[in-house]
Structure formats: structure tokens, C-alpha cells
Design a protein around this nucleic acid. Structure first.
Lengths: 255, 255
DNA sequence: GGTTTTGTTGCGCACTGTGCAACGCCCATT
DNA sequence: AATGGGCGTTGCACAGTGCGCAACAAAACC
């Protein structure tokens, strides 16, 4: 809508790929050098980009601060986190938390068993939306027309032989997930990785987030993974309860 | 420099404080509603803001993805991380990693002893630049004119009785730090918290980052904390070595 | 020392962003 | 059910702002 802002914002993902100099930025945006310079300077003033010694630009640290605050505003995340940690301690596997936003599903939290602090690993990256258990849960809850619209707009990459092949199959799967209240991904993204997922619901019953347990085939088979389902569902329900206010968090201080 | 982009970017920290509706945004920017709407739409198209059900805007998840990639580009961080974890395992205290950028010092990594996964806690937030050990290390290495310029531009809040009072005292402290190659903060930010810090240096000897150990007074006194200094310095030197290529990381794959 | 490459500045033109006013929608209130 | 107020949205005319050009400056290269 706004040309100038649009161009400026297109610089960010471009720099996310790696540092770039003025000319490269101008070329990628298909604008004159002086235009790119003006945009970069404005971004720089706001700390969104940083200029290193070799004069090349890269993403600035202000993005850190903003992302952090964005995360703090996602109160589902804050509420869910201790529950995810507890779940991880009991089952030992990787635990994810994801939300839906504007046609995308994103991981917003992750607890890994072996490297509990390897934090940024995948948080923020879009999920393989056509196969991931959490994606199925989140999409299954959308109102019918939107669900259909999203399903038909998607690509269906054949990550493995078990990946969801097309929109029809996906919608059918979503119907199943909607009915049973949980979801799986058995080797649909990577051959040897299996997942089970359960929904986190808000006061009105709508799915606001989804969490999942992931584990490689060689560690636990699909059968064993399904045995964890009750534990997972209890965790998801505990988060839902706290998020809905059934188990109220410490009350705000009054003066 | 560019009015439109400037206004658009000013929306982000504003929304970081919490969700806001169109009118509030327009009022805070001091522009007409229609102008704010256009800016917000452009930000929305790029996933920088998200519109929740009640039509209020909040920061979007794209910021997550960008911040993640920004972090990945900070290769100091990636290299340092396992070393910081190892240090934390040996001493048990909180370990920080910070960098300098454009007059600010920011934490870019943190390992906490008791809650190792409480990740976003302070990462990305600017450091108390006049007192923190890591800030002293990073500023002490700036070329003299810039160091002086920064020192004189700063405010010197009296967090505690031991906080750095003014630019003169700060510059003197920086000279000491520069000489001895390590830094401390004994109760300068919070009365009961002490820190020691050591620099991470690049190939050319310049300080590219700084790491520190922080612990409350009640757990370890300043004397005990200083006993950890050799361990800390060894860690910082190990990171420096790996960063400088003395201990080369796994070589890139060739075809 | 000359040449190429890359960043920076000033400037005139016109395109793009701006604010205004009118419209439409939803919710609250009676 | 009708009325009113609050808020988001749209279209438009004006001019302010961002645009690309071209010349300049400064490294980097040979």
C-alpha cells in the first residue's frame, strides 16, 4: 500500500540472508542507489539494521528487543512454558508450541531434551503446514470457509511418501483431527520423525495454540509415542485451563 | 530521513508496549487515522504487525523469524554458546554474552543456572551501560575519540551508591579495564548483584563481544567471584580462539 | 598514478503519501 | 426496533516528500 515503507520492509528479509552492501540492496529492490541509501539510513536510525566495519549492512539488534517484547505479549507462550518444560522432563522428547497467524503456522516455543538451551533453533520459523501435527490442529479449528480457502491456497510438497498429497486429502485429515481432538504426523515431514499434538483452547473453546511431542523413529515407535498422548493432552488441557482463567495466575497488585 | 518509513517504524516499539487500536496509533504518531491505517496495512502485509479479533494491532510473528535470522548471523553468539553452557555448568551462576552496537550494549545470550530454558528473559534488552562489566569491556576497546564521545553522551543514573557517577569516573574506569583485560561490577546496578566479565577478541585483537558471570551477594562474595576469574578468562579466550579461526569450525562442504 | 568500483550529495520533477470529509458498520442504549 | 455514538474505511485533490539522475568523493585495485 505504501511504496516507501514496502521497499524498506523488503530490505529486512533480504538482509536476513546475510550481510549486503548498498549496491546489492539497491539491485535486489530494483531501485536507485540513492533511494536504497535513504531507506537504509532510516532503518539504521531505528536500529533495525546495523552497518559493520566493511560498510555492509546486516540486521540490527533492535529486532531482538522487539521480538522479545512480541513474545512477552503472547501470553499463551508465557503460560504454556512451564508446562512444556514439565512435559519434557517426563517424556524426554522435544516439545513444541505453535500458533496460527495469517495463513501461517509458527513455532513460538520449543524445549529440547538434550540441549535445553539451544533456544533459537527453530522458533519463529514457519512450520511445514501441510504435514505438522500442530498445523493440523490449528487449521482444523478455523471456520469452514477459511479452512477451505487456506487448504486450497497451499502447496503440498512431497517431503516423504507419507506427506499430505493435496488439498482434498488435507481437508479430510483436518476433519478427522477436528473430530478426535488430537493430531499426528508420522513421517510426513521427515521420514524418521514422528509427532503427536494436542490443542490449547481459549475461554470460548477456540484453538489458540497447539503443542506437540516429536521423536525420531529409532528412539520410540509410533505405538510408544501414542502412549504419551494422554500425558500430552493433560498438559494441553492444563495450559488451556490456566489460559482461560480457570486456574487464575497470581492476581495483579492493587493499590 | 524518510518520513513515511520513520513513521512506520515508530509504530513497532509503540505496539511492543501492548496492543493498540487504529485511533491510538494515529494519536501517538500524531497523524491522521487514514495515514496510520495505510502504514499499519503495509506493516501487516509484511507480517510485522498482526490484527487480533478485536481489531487491535499487535506485533507480528515475522519479527520472530527475522530476529532468529539476525541471531544466526551473529556468529559470535553461535560459537560462544556451548562455551557459555560449559562455564555455567562448572560455576552454576548466570552467564551473559553481550555486544556493542551504535552506542548501545545488548545482551545477546544468557544461560541461567536454575531455569536454563527461561530464554527470552533479558536477551535483546539494552544493558545498564554505565555500570555493567560487559559494557565496560566493550566500551574500553573503542578508539579513544569515540569512547570519549559515548561516555560524555551518556546519562549516569545512580542505581546504587556504587554506580558510576559521571563521565570522568567512567573514563577512568574504562582505562583500568582496558589495562587489566577484565572488568567487574560490584553492586553498581543492583545492590546485591556482583559481576565479573572478560572480553572476546577477533582476529585483529579488537573486542567483538564480552561475557560475564553474575551472582547475588548472598551466594558468593566478591572474593569468591574473583576466584572464578581465571575460569572465565579461559572461557573467553577459548571463544576468541574459535572465533578467530585458531580452532577452525567444521569446514564448509565442497562439491 | 591512473582506473574502476562503491558510497554520497544536491536537485528538479512528479509521483506518492497526506489530511479531509463523507460513508458504513457495529455496538450500546432506551 | 430505532437512534446515536464510536471507530474503521474509502475516495479524492493538493502538495510535500521521495524519486532517479548526474556529478562528486573516496577507496580499492592494478
Amino acid at each position: 500500500m505504501s511504496q516507501t515503507v514496502d521497499r524498506a520492509l523488503r530490505i529486512l528479509p533480504l538482509l536476513a540472508e546475510g550481510p549486503a552492501n548498498l549496491e546489492q540492496v539497491a539491485a535486489r529492490l530494483d531501485v536507485h542507489k540513492s533511494t536504497a541509501l535513504r531507506l537504509l539510513r532510516t532503518l539504521h536510525e531505528h536500529g533495525m539494521v546495523y552497518r559493520q566495519q566493511d560498510q555492509r549492512y546486516r540486521l540490527g539488534t533492535r529486532l531482538f528487543a522487539l521480538a522479545q517484547q512480541a513474545a512477552e505479549n503472547l501470553d499463551v507462550r508465557e503460560i504454556a512454558h512451564p508446562h512444556l518444560v514439565a512435559l519434557n522432563e517426563r517424556c524426554g522428547h522435544t516439545v513444541h508450541l505453535a500458533v496460527y497467524e495469517d495463513g501461517e503456522v509458527l513455532y513460538i516455543d520449543k524445549v529440547e531434551s538434550r540441549y535445553p538451551v539451544r533456544m533459537y533453533s527453530r522458533i519463529g520459523k514457519p512450520v511445514a503446514i501441510t504435514v505438522a501435527a500442530v498445523a493440523k490442529l490449528l487449521l482444523a479449528d478455523l471456520p469452514e470457509p477459511e479452512r477451505r480457502a487456506v487448504a486450497e491456497r497451499l502447496d503440498y510438497p512431497a517431503y516423504t511418501a507419507r506427506s499430505t498429497p493435496d488439498a482434498a486429502a488435507f481437508l479430510k485429515e483436518l476433519a478427522t483431527v477436528r473430530e478426535q481432538g488430537w493430531a499426528t504426523d508420522f513421517g510426513g515431514h521427515e521420514e524418521s520423525i514422528n509427532c503427536v499434538g494436542a490443542p490449547v483452547r481459549g475461554t470460548d473453546g477456540r484453538v489458540v495454540a497447539a503443542c506437540s511431542i516429536s521423536a525420531p523413529n529409532v528412539v520410540v515407535g509410533t505405538g510408544e509415542l501414542l502412549e504419551l498422548l494422554p500425558l500430552l493432552r493433560r498438559t494441553a488441557e492444563a495450559v488451556s485451563a490456566e489460559y482461560s482463567g480457570t486456574t487464575p495466575p497470581p492476581p495483579p497488585v492493587r493499590k
